[in-house]
Nucleic acid binder design. Structure first.
Lengths: 205, 205
DNA sequence: GCTCTTACGCTACGAGCCGTAGCGTAACTG
DNA sequence: CAGTTACGCTACGGCTCGTAGCGTAAGAGC
């Protein structure tokens, strides 16, 4: 997730890491105020106190810039403390993920880049590395803990286990995203409880 | 879902319904070829054999145009034949929804307008009326059938029943969308079976 | 120190799209 | 027939894009 696709360089003036941070921060701020559609490269550059050309030297397109700007937020917020039971762990990750999605810059940006990624394989790859795969780790971690607690059986067939993990991941992330962005309703603790109970019931069957 | 926000008019030259159809069809075609980002109003007008001004007389923005263009596809494809069991019904609706999302014009457009709707309440309302609420009916229908078959209990508290229906809806639609667009993997019959089994297990618990 | 190399800020530019205005013409109503 | 509205066409100012060219700033290597 280095912010720039910089070629191997070892001589000459180094790129300013301060500019990197300023640009990404300006991108997030602009997303909140303007939304995806009205966000312009020139505006981001102005907010960051940076020339437009500097911006283009690092990111080839608005899409990639926004992916990187948002990816940092996921790293901050996504952890999975052990809450003692699988039910509690699921509720916890749901609430954390929902809190992230309720931030205006996150929801707008995430959906916009996902939309663009349906036509751009490189962008999808970038999203996968920067965001999706990191979330998926949480599913694997949660399962391991649940198995250690005896709440879930150990699956023998590793490919079946991987399919199950993918399924769980799509169900959790998909439900939270859909609830938040499409149904446009809050993910509150009550909803998280109901969802976790539903999922847990399915997992035990 | 009348294609245009036309004021009550009764005199003068009527709007050409042929132009309406041509514009919506051209919009879908352009989405497939160009994607959301590069889709321009001028291009759509040219494809439809219509003046750009005619287009603006009916739709105020690209967003609304695309919502209407895509909404028609949902009406075509979304039905819920009685397949004899709740498991089969869930699998059926999942596969139908997935087939819809795999069409290039649908997935790109749907995500793009959802992204825009995070900043535009009117657009969200339009999406809700044109797309989301229609899908939700399928959930209610499926539950009624399952209750009639004795597969699900009748819930007494109507508000709790509504919350459950909303939850199921977000889980089903969210999982399919996430699998298709974020994880970028196919929803095949095997996945549908696994998902339906998971959901069914949760519903019975 | 000095030179080499790269990043930076600034300005300017052609290109494309936006959304609207103005016009003359076409179609339908009473 | 007059009145009203839709249509196609052209033209326009305004904005954003992405790039090029310049002089300057900041490290790397000798």
């Amino acid at each position: 997730m280095s912010p720039a696709p910089s070629p191997a360089r070892r001589t000459g003036r180094p790129r300013s890491p301060e500019a990197d941070r300023a640009i990404l921060e300006a991108t997030r701020a602009a997303l909140v105020e303007l939304g995806w559609g009205k966000l312009t490269m020139g505006d981001v550059a102005a907010r960051a106190g940076v020339a437009k050309t500097t911006l283009y030297r690092r990111w080839a397109s608005k899409n990639e810039l926004v992916v990187d700007a948002v990816a940092a937020l996921f790293d901050e917020q996504l952890e999975l403390p052990d809450l003692g039971s699988l039910q509690a762990d699921i509720e916890g990750v749901v609430l954390r993920f929902a809190a992230l999605l309720e931030r205006p810059e996150t929801k707008t940006a995430l959906m916009a880049v996902v939309a663009e990624s349906t036509r751009d394989d490189a962008l999808r790859e970038r999203i996968r590395d920067a965001i999706v795969d990191r979330q998926k780790r949480l599913v694997l971690l949660g399962r391991e803990r649940a198995q250690a607690r005896g709440e879930l059986p150990y699956e023998e067939d590793p490919s079946a286990a991987a399919r199950t993990a993918d399924l769980i991941f799509d169900v959790i992330a998909g439900a939270v995203v859909h609830r938040t962005l499409v149904s446009a309703e809050r993910v509150d603790p009550e909803w998280a409880r109901g969802f976790a109970a539903l999922l847990l019931g399915g997992l035990r069957a």
